[in-house]
């Protein structure tokens, strides 16, 4: 269903009622309070797990991470719990976003043009780009797979006496690889949601984005919720800007 990946459907819950999202003129609601809450819980637990994990991953490089958590033994005690927090909150987020993360034929076409996306040869995204683009969906599904790998291998390493040494030795490698892949991906994620695509950060803080952001980065989503044609809207905005320029001259 093309529409399911263009529109984010959400029923207001308790968490949403704890906060509010103010949508100013010229803005669109992007992420409700519940989504934002989950996202930042995921973010916090991710970095806690990452730092405590790296103190154990390469102790001769990251020896300064373990004291942050109260020494080696406490770090070792806390890391699995950070991981549990990360997986639970990301699991809720995955349920929250399941519909909108569904892979569509448009996403496959987006992947074919990834080079143009990276080199910024088009000023706006392809018109069929929905609520999330294919890159975001790939990252999402990578984290889903990574979480499954973390849970399985993590539990094995948490209770080694049940699973035996060979399973532990294998888990150790898989757990590490999952962390490395996720870390690699997070650099792109943090970059694109801050410096790489200005105007994105507020989607996860205040919960809104500008209309211009929407027709630039997610035209099909813009069309879906406003009913307006994103290209037409862009042309109109350009005309208005040109008129202002002329008035200033």
């Amino acid at each position: 269903m093309a529409t399911s990946a263009n529109r984010f459907v959400h029923r207001t819950n308790v968490i949403d009622r704890l906060g509010r999202t103010v949508v100013y003129a010229g803005e669109l609601l992007r992420h409700p309070v519940y989504t934002r809450f989950l996202h930042w819980m995921v973010g916090i637990f991710f970095f806690l797990a990452l730092l405590s994990g790296f103190g154990i991953y390469l102790p001769w490089i990251f020896r300064f991470f373990t004291p942050l958590f109260g020494g080696g033994a406490t770090t070792r005690f806390l890391h699995p719990w950070f991981g549990v927090g990360f997986v639970i909150f990301f699991g809720l987020q995955a349920l929250n976003w399941l519909g909108v993360m569904r892979w569509t034929p448009a996403d496959s076409r987006w992947m074919k043009h990834i080079k143009e996306y990276v080199t910024r040869s088009d000023s706006v995204e392809a018109p069929e780009t929905g609520f999330f683009n294919a890159g975001q969906k790939m990252q999402f599904w990578e984290i889903v797979c990574g979480c499954i790998a973390y849970v399985i291998t993590g539990v094995i390493m948490w209770f080694p006496e049940i699973f035996g040494r060979i399973l532990v030795a294998i888990s150790y490698v898989v757990h590490d690889m999952s962390a490395l892949i996720m870390l690699f991906g997070i650099f792109f994620h943090v970059y694109l949601s801050t410096f790489g695509e200005p105007g994105t950060t507020q989607a996860m803080t205040r919960g809104t984005v500008s209309e211009a952001w929407a027709w630039t980065h997610h035209p099909a989503w813009y069309h879906e919720i406003t009913g307006r044609d994103p290209q037409q809207a862009l042309k109109q905005a350009e005309a208005e800007m040109a008129a202002r320029e002329r008035a200033n001259d």
């Binding site: 990276v118 910024r120 790489g196 695509e197 200005p198 027709w215």
Partner: peptide
């Protein structure tokens, strides 16, 4: 990427 390609900004840009 930021140094060589720069950000993708909302359109229209000045």
């Amino acid at each position: 990427h930021y140094v060589f390609e720069g950000p993708r900004r909302e359109q229209p840009t000045p």
